[in-house]
Simulated scan of single mutants.
Amino acid sequence: MNTWLRHHLYAIHIAARRLLGTPFSSLTNIMVIALVLTLPLLASAILVSMEPLARNISVNPAISLFMNDTTTIERTRELAKQLQDEHSQSILTLEVIDKAQALQSLKASESWSDALKVLPQNPLPHSIIITLSDEASPTEMAEQLAQAWSQLPEVDVLQFDSAWIQKLEAILSFIRIVLGLLAAGVALIVITTIFNTVRMQALVQRDEIAVARLVGATESFVRRPFLYFGALTGLTAGLLAVLLSTLTLSVLNQAITLLSSSYGIPFSFTLPPASWLALTIALVMIIAATAARWSVTRHSHF
């Protein structure tokens, strides 16, 4: 166990020395990886920040059921109770509006009072306003409920505008696809950068590697410093990317705060949780270490 630990500490020491021994090359590689990694981090920050806003907007889509002329207020209330009992998991709130009360509310408005005075009778229908719960908020389920309720014999007109929900979900889906493509691009750039860097190091240190093999060094012992070199590069680039993303979001939030406050909706971009960021950095380290192992395996046989 002590030997294993000593070998790994030695490999980490050698990797750190190589990283610091070529500051310009190391800094260039780290900056390239960090800048590219910043893009998916910013995209994920936008996605993470918009999803709660989307849920708050689409969590309570309302469906309005307007009764036909022959449906009385008593029957409207019975229908409302029936829908509440049958779809209790899908309905958040339900409100029955008497057409007489609705007419009085309109007459209280100065802009409508004069126009309503000339009408011989109340043109408004009884209505049921249903606010859907979280379970029924997804577009497909909400549309299924709207389609089913529109077939009720008491219902004359059903109003449910789902186009804006579909557009919002399409935008979020597009961001997820872009995030996936950016992640794939980051992985490709990390592999390419680390592969070429380790290849050059293996060629420069070919004599050192040859002597190490002559005195009995195993292939694992030879490769281990290069693997840690890739992992340390990925770790440093990941931490720098998080810092750059934080600074960028800070600047964006200063601008977006003015815009969101004008609409009365507090909103700001935030990075994903720390556990998600730690997992991202760990994946970058694993990809970098794998690329380093691949490179040193291909270019250290001489």
Score class of each variant (00 low, 15 high):
residue 257 T to I: 09
residue 235 L to H: 05
residue 242 V to S: 04
residue 167 K to T: 12
residue 260 S to A: 15
residue 257 T to W: 03
residue 193 T to P: 05
residue 158 L to Q: 10
residue 223 R to G: 04
residue 216 G to I: 01
residue 259 L to I: 15
residue 163 A to E: 14
residue 239 L to R: 03
residue 248 T to A: 14
residue 258 L to E: 14
residue 172 L to S: 11
residue 198 V to Q: 01
residue 260 S to Y: 12
residue 158 L to I: 12
residue 178 V to Q: 00
residue 261 S to M: 11
residue 212 A to Q: 14
residue 167 K to H: 11
residue 238 G to H: 11
residue 210 A to W: 00
residue 146 A to Y: 01
residue 155 V to A: 05
residue 223 R to I: 04
residue 212 A to L: 13
residue 238 G to S: 10
residue 169 E to S: 13
residue 206 R to P: 05
residue 188 L to A: 13
residue 185 G to K: 04
residue 176 R to P: 04
residue 182 L to H: 01
residue 254 Q to R: 05
residue 157 V to F: 15
residue 150 S to P: 00
residue 243 L to N: 06
residue 199 R to G: 02
residue 261 S to F: 10
residue 212 A to I: 08
residue 160 F to P: 07
residue 232 L to H: 01
residue 158 L to T: 12
residue 179 L to I: 00
residue 174 F to Q: 07
residue 211 V to M: 10
residue 245 S to A: 15
residue 260 S to D: 09
residue 162 S to T: 12
residue 206 R to K: 15
residue 215 V to S: 06
residue 242 V to T: 09
residue 221 F to Q: 06
residue 187 A to I: 14
residue 188 L to P: 02
residue 226 F to P: 07
residue 234 G to T: 00
residue 206 R to G: 04
residue 262 S to M: 10
residue 226 F to H: 12
residue 151 Q to K: 14
residue 193 T to Y: 02
residue 239 L to S: 05
residue 177 I to T: 13
residue 238 G to P: 10
residue 197 T to W: 08
residue 247 L to C: 08
residue 201 Q to Y: 06
residue 209 I to C: 00
residue 267 F to T: 03
residue 163 A to K: 09
residue 200 M to G: 10
residue 219 E to C: 05
residue 225 P to C: 07
residue 243 L to H: 03
residue 151 Q to Y: 06
residue 214 L to I: 09
residue 187 A to E: 03
residue 238 G to W: 00
residue 160 F to N: 00
residue 209 I to D: 01
residue 247 L to D: 00
residue 157 V to K: 15
residue 183 A to S: 08
residue 250 S to T: 13
residue 208 E to H: 05
residue 187 A to R: 06
residue 229 F to Y: 13
residue 245 S to G: 06
residue 172 L to M: 13
residue 244 L to G: 06
residue 174 F to I: 09
residue 202 A to F: 00
residue 220 S to T: 11
residue 237 A to I: 11
residue 150 S to W: 03
residue 230 G to A: 10
residue 247 L to G: 11
residue 161 D to L: 13
residue 200 M to N: 11
residue 178 V to S: 05
residue 155 V to M: 08
residue 212 A to Y: 02
residue 168 L to C: 04
residue 180 G to I: 15
residue 203 L to W: 15
residue 246 T to K: 10
residue 149 W to A: 03
residue 247 L to P: 05
residue 234 G to R: 02
residue 199 R to I: 10
residue 269 F to N: 06
residue 159 Q to H: 15
residue 154 E to G: 09
residue 253 N to Q: 07
residue 211 V to R: 08
residue 183 A to E: 01
residue 259 L to M: 15
residue 183 A to Q: 00
residue 244 L to H: 11
residue 175 I to V: 15
residue 221 F to N: 02
residue 180 G to L: 14
residue 219 E to L: 09
residue 198 V to D: 03
residue 168 L to I: 08
residue 269 F to S: 02
residue 268 S to W: 11
